[in-house]
Amino acid sequence: MSDKKSKNVFIKGAISSEFIGNSIAKHQTKTSIGAHNIFLGQVRADLVNNKTVSAIEYTAYEDMANAKFHEIREAAFEKFELTCMHIYHSLGTVNVGEICLFVFVSSPHRKTVFDALEFIVEEIKANVPVFGKEIFEDNSHQWKVNN
């Protein structure tokens, strides 16, 4: 029973721990699953030139981003034996310590979810047009660059 349809990926603001917990709970009825793996991206209080990041404000070229998320889903289902996968990314302001990316993969077996999760997160970082503006405590900003 795969869950391959296109989903709404973007969430306004931070992704709450309640939302993440509920997502896990919803999978208890899917009893062919033997392993879940979860990636949570958290906003880091980087220190740049003596100024501390207090939040990241995310924007995206949403049409292309949704198309890319869909392609990544299709590629992941093609490449790995997944029962289901979910991706959620924040838009707008996410404060330090809050979650901005939630990727959740499930499969009958553990090795599949270890490999699939890394593949999906790296694809998102490289190919999805999302832009992070790091806001400092004094309200100045710089544009984030992924390593």
């Binding site: 991206g41 995310y58 995206a60 047009p129 999302v130 832009f131 992070g132 992924n146």
Partner: peptide, 23 residues
């Protein structure tokens, strides 16, 4: 879709994207 700058204009909408920094 990303296209090289030598590409022909095939659309009446063009988008300029700085380096991605999602996640």
């Amino acid at each position: 879709e990303l296209v090289p700058v030598e590409a022909k204009l095939l659309s009446n909408e063009i988008v300029l994207l700085p380096p991605f920094s999602g996640g």
